[in-house]
Simulated scan of single mutants.
Amino acid sequence: MKEILREIGMISRCLATISDIEFKDIQLGKNQYLYLVRVYENPGIIQEKLSQLLKVDRTTTAKAVKKLIEQGYLEKVQTQDNKKEFKLFCTQKGKDIYSFLEKEENHSSKISLVDFNKEEEKELLKKLHSMRIRIENEWQEIKKGKKRDY
């Protein structure tokens, strides 16, 4: 049923547009808030793990992280055991806006799920998680060069 993926896509694009508008005053655009939130929630994460967590390529992550560092939201700290590896942390500026970002996420979740009871929310999450795992597995294979059979 292709309508399901289309609905998910529309939800994603609406939320991205809302965040671009609402976060304009704090210079967070193009989903940069996602990177900031994940680093806040996973202090010391390396860029590769951040890419995996967000399901984006390393180049996209590198650009977003670079911009967030330039804006003073994140900092890189070189690891002791691997001089090529850097851990990411929120600066005080990044930590200070996290509660605002969290409030926006909570509000969007609340609006999105207004007609759902707790059991329906759990079931929806379970189904979406299952969908994501299957798509993620295929995504991993395609990144390695596999062609899909239609």
Results as ranks from 00 to 15, higher is better:
residue 138 E to T: 12
residue 59 T to C: 00
residue 79 T to S: 13
residue 80 Q to T: 11
residue 115 D to M: 05
residue 7 E to W: 01
residue 5 L to K: 09
residue 7 E to H: 04
residue 43 P to Q: 07
residue 43 P to Y: 05
residue 28 L to S: 06
residue 129 H to C: 06
residue 114 V to D: 07
residue 134 R to S: 15
residue 121 E to I: 15
residue 61 T to K: 02
residue 6 R to G: 01
residue 22 E to Q: 10
residue 140 Q to T: 12
residue 131 M to S: 05
residue 5 L to G: 06
residue 16 A to Q: 07
residue 56 V to R: 06
residue 37 V to D: 00
residue 82 N to S: 12
residue 137 N to D: 13
residue 132 R to Y: 14
residue 117 N to I: 05
residue 76 K to L: 01
residue 128 L to F: 08
residue 108 S to W: 03
residue 122 K to Y: 05
residue 27 Q to P: 00
residue 117 N to V: 08
residue 64 A to K: 13
residue 74 L to C: 06
residue 138 E to H: 11
residue 5 L to C: 06
residue 118 K to N: 07
residue 82 N to H: 12
residue 114 V to W: 04
residue 73 Y to E: 01
residue 85 E to S: 13
residue 65 V to W: 00
residue 100 F to S: 11
residue 139 W to I: 10
residue 15 L to I: 11
residue 29 G to E: 10
residue 82 N to D: 15
residue 62 A to D: 06
residue 129 H to S: 14
residue 88 L to F: 01
residue 24 K to Y: 10
residue 120 E to Q: 15
residue 96 D to N: 14
residue 131 M to K: 08
residue 111 I to V: 09
residue 81 D to T: 14
residue 83 K to P: 00
residue 105 E to V: 06
residue 89 F to R: 02
residue 21 I to H: 13
residue 9 G to A: 14
residue 72 G to D: 12
residue 44 G to I: 05
residue 74 L to T: 03
residue 84 K to Q: 12
residue 11 I to V: 13
residue 14 C to V: 11
residue 135 I to T: 11
residue 129 H to L: 10
residue 50 L to W: 03
residue 128 L to Q: 07
residue 93 K to L: 13
residue 107 H to F: 15
residue 53 L to W: 03
residue 87 K to R: 15
residue 32 Q to K: 09
residue 136 E to I: 00
residue 125 L to Q: 05
residue 143 K to C: 09
residue 77 V to D: 10
residue 144 K to Q: 14
residue 73 Y to Q: 02
residue 81 D to L: 14
residue 51 S to V: 02
residue 49 K to H: 05
residue 135 I to S: 14
residue 83 K to S: 07
residue 104 E to F: 05
residue 10 M to G: 06
residue 4 I to W: 04
residue 78 Q to E: 15
residue 128 L to M: 10
residue 39 V to S: 01
residue 1 M to S: 09
residue 132 R to C: 14
residue 137 N to V: 03
residue 145 G to Y: 13
residue 113 L to Y: 01
residue 63 K to Q: 03
residue 37 V to Y: 01
residue 145 G to C: 10
residue 128 L to N: 10
residue 55 K to N: 14
residue 140 Q to G: 04
residue 64 A to Q: 03
residue 98 Y to R: 01
residue 46 I to D: 03
residue 64 A to H: 11
residue 51 S to E: 01
residue 16 A to N: 07
residue 81 D to Q: 10
residue 132 R to G: 14
